[in-house]
Design a protein around this nucleic acid. Structure first.
Lengths: 157, 157
DNA sequence: TGCATACAGGACCAGATTGGTCCCAATTCG
DNA sequence: CGAATTGGGACCAATCTGGTCCTGTATGCA
């Protein structure tokens, strides 16, 4: 556990795909859906949200689409999470919650958990979409891989 | 977001309370519930689970209760999370999932996210219940604090 | 001008997760 | 024996979330 939502997971996949294929190129939701096997409506939903923030730039109309609003190296994973899931905090009281922790007095945990939380945030801020798109683990060019069937939403199996 | 479940949150509070009051002392679920304002059935549920793993030692019968099975410094936050929520992995494919990621081929993300995941785990493994119980941030002794009313499950407000 | 394509912004639903409660059996102490 | 306590469930209601769908608006092209 300690998990991102699937939407955020998808977002990272989509953004890294865009980042890998040139930051200035334009992608339609339909195209991205085809390439990732993520259901189109889901892709739309996510891209719309990323478009409202300053992460993606959208162009409407025929031959429209989305492209990165900034350089891939300037969009951190933490920012993606923040956009789609709100402030990063592993517990309710470890963030800058406006609602006071109900356990406050019996909870000496918070100060320590804030340190943990900080460590997590630092780790996530230290990684950009550019990093995600271009893994440095002796990456030969991304081999096409054998799984070509639409694995998500596949009706058959 | 990127949040622990409330149960895990509670567990950290409970364990830190136990650790703070002497690792060898015995606590009943009822007692801990009173002190933390966490609903008793919830406390029971959590302690039961921690008892099954080797985190708490339980004694049944009258004047029974729970105490830490190990030294507070030897129980990491990561272990608590692992016990209550399963393996720590921020996405489905970043862990040692047995179910293959459906996006596998179009997902160059994983290797990088595994690094992120590793960073998170490292941070959580580096902090023990002992640390949580005794924060080193110029801690004067834990002042009783003003909030004495049962804030959780309070019927009135 | 008309139409196809794409994004914008919702509402909406079903399933899964989770916080929380409750019940009953087994164990131990006085 | 009886009270106190853990053990191990089942159970429910509320929330969250993945996923779908519908309608409107902007744009490019024949």
């Amino acid at each position: 556990m300690l998990r991102l939502t699937k939407q955020t997971d998808y977002a990272l996949v989509l953004l890294s795909l865009i980042a890998r294929n040139g930051a200035s190129e334009m992608f339609t939701a339909r195209d991205l859906a085809r390439r990732t096997n993520i259901p189109l409506p889901m892709v739309s939903k996510i891209l719309k949200r990323l478009g409202k923030e300053e992460i993606l730039h959208s162009v409407r109309g025929a031959s429209g689409g989305y492209r990165l609003a900034r350089d891939p190296s300037e969009v951190s994973v933490a920012e993606i999470i923040l956009t789609l899931e709100g402030p990063i905090s592993i517990t309710e009281c470890s963030g800058e919650s406006d609602t006071l922790c109900a356990l406050e007095c019996s909870c000496p945990v918070s100060s320590t958990l804030q340190r943990v939380n900080r460590a997590v945030i630092d780790a996530l801020e230290g990684i950009s979409i550019g990093d995600v798109a271009a893994p440095h683990h002796a990456a030969s060019d991304p081999k096409p891989c054998s799984c070509t069937a639409p694995l998500i939403g596949a009706p058959g199996a």
